[in-house]
């Protein structure tokens, strides 16, 4: 092949047409309160892991909403399951349980 000295860039946008909504629905079935999230970010603001490791639980579950799972499993290992996020959530999302279910879903769905 001719050497062009560059390669064709890959798309950076989320293509929602490739996503499997079933995965999100399965998670929501396990943690129904998750549906109520309004993205206020209180969870991330209070997160101990977030202060040092760049861990952002709000970002993670938003990526999972679009079925963007790459790298999430590793990132979720940073959570120490202290449960502070659950305490501060104004919409009563059971975040601690959500993280546990997310870890499991990601491990099962490799």
């Amino acid at each position: 092949m001719a050497d062009f000295g560059f390669s064709i860039s890959k798309p950076q946008s989320i293509d929602t047409n490739d996503m499997d909504v079933g995965r999100l629905q399965a998670l929501e079935a396990k943690v129904p309160s998750f549906k109520r999230c309004i993205n206020c970010g209180a969870c991330t603001a209070t997160c101990s892991a977030g202060q040092f490791g760049g861990f952002n639980i709000r970002r993670i579950h938003n990526l999972y909403r679009w079925d963007q799972r790459k790298g999430l499993e590793k990132e979720l290992q940073q959570c120490m399951l202290c449960g502070k996020c659950t305490l501060v959530c104004p919409r009563g999302v059971n975040l601690r349980y959500l993280i546990i279910r997310l870890r499991k879903a990601l491990a099962d769905n490799k």
Partner: peptide, 14 residues
């Protein structure tokens, strides 16, 4: 700039 051409061609490809 040659190094940027991958971005340029990706738009046409899309």
């Amino acid at each position: 700039v040659r190094a940027n051409r991958g971005y340029s061609v990706a738009n046409s490809k899309k």
